[in-house]
Nucleic acid binder design. Structure first.
Lengths: 199, 199
DNA sequence: TGACATCCAGAACGTTCGTTCTGTATCTTC
DNA sequence: GAAGATACAGAACGAACGTTCTGGATGTCA
């Protein structure tokens, strides 16, 4: 007896193939292309599978009724340090959804710039040489923010502080001096995050 | 005289609006939706604009003739600290292409996991609490690597070192002790990068 | 052995897609 | 101030889209 009528399962390969297609083209294909991708020759069945992926949260629709990736589409193995697990597999399968690292770091793409960090003047803030700083471009900032400022025609990353009613740029490294800009301080943007590659 | 017939310029806001739409929905909309997005009421003109974006490398087509993001679509303003610039605008327009932060950090998606960092035991390596560690999952590592190991059913991030022919896990913070695992040391993966959000 | 659900093929159908063509208002350029 | 390019609007059209319906093959369970 099917007392608990479970959702019919669908081929996990279907999802993988879709994800591979998406990662290559950055777009969800049409039903007929999906049919070819999945080795199905009936759009009606594609439609059915899409509905199931939709219910499972892997696909979704735009307000314009176009098929788009759902909340779980970009799910990666996310593991918490505190996770209790005997086996790595058990651990990572517990991980829940997270979109793209890009999405996590970048809120407004059109107002976001990336600055490659030179030097170690912010080392005590955990900002290393070669890191990619995610910057929200805006002309002003609050005291205490880490800002990217333009000093002597160069970008510089520093803490924004106030000293005797004047803005100063403070490094996070005792080997460097505080910068006291003459005249107006030109701010390029505020640090919103960073990315580092170590391999 | 138009000796050098330049490409007619197109509204940079068009691209930004498309990028923002894409970052929300992860999909390129249809021409009629684009028309609404750009405040245009003629699909013919949308078609023309798309052609220009295509020539500029911001849009492209799948083999199935579906519109998709082009090579330069995910380009962000990348600014070098050493860039010479009077104006911010002049500076960032010099920036060249970079794909997604995701692509930059993640080489092999299927073997990559993300671990949220707990505690400050690796603070001297510039790894803060709350950072997202990009980990290449593999059962072994080299001495000197920053590894994610499984100790007492918990993930822990440490340097892998050798001490009297035995592997030890060394924190980057003097307040924490070196971990000398009894028996086999279980390695989850090796750090490949990190992402931090500060806003 | 029958009842029923699942998995898939095939065709029909109204809608929406992107292309193309014509037309118009504005703005240069000489 | 005439010529030409540019930036749109609007309509027409065939092709492609996704939905829906019918129907067959296979598997499961009592």
């Amino acid at each position: 007896m099917a007392l608990n009528p479970q959702k019919p399962q669908l081929d996990p390969q279907y999802l993988e193939k879709l994800q591979d297609y998406y990662s290559e083209h950055k777009v969800i294909p049409s039903y007929s292309v999906l049919a070819g991708l999945w080795g199905i020759s009936a759009k009606s069945w594609v439609s059915e599978c899409v509905k199931r992926f939709e219910e499972a949260g892997f696909l979704d629709w735009t307000p314009d009724k176009q098929l788009k990736p759902g909340a779980r589409f970009f799910e990666r193995k996310l593991a918490d340090s505190a996770v209790q697990a005997g086996l790595p597999n058990a651990a990572i399968s517990d991980g829940y959804d997270l979109v793209t690292i890009d999405d996590w770091l970048v809120k407004i793409p059109s107002k976001t710039a990336l600055v490659r960090v030179k030097g170690d003047s912010m080392i005590d803030a955990g900002i290393h040489e070669g890191d990619l700083l995610v910057v929200e471009v805006q002309p002003n900032a609050n005291v205490g923010d880490i800002v990217v400022a333009i000093v002597d025609n160069e970008f510089t990353v520093k803490y924004l502080q106030k000293e005797r009613n004047e803005f100063v740029l403070k490094p996070a490294n005792r080997a460097y001096p505080v910068i006291r800009p003459k005249g107006r301080l030109e701010i390029f943007g505020v640090m919103a995050g960073l990315a580092r590659r170590t391999r």
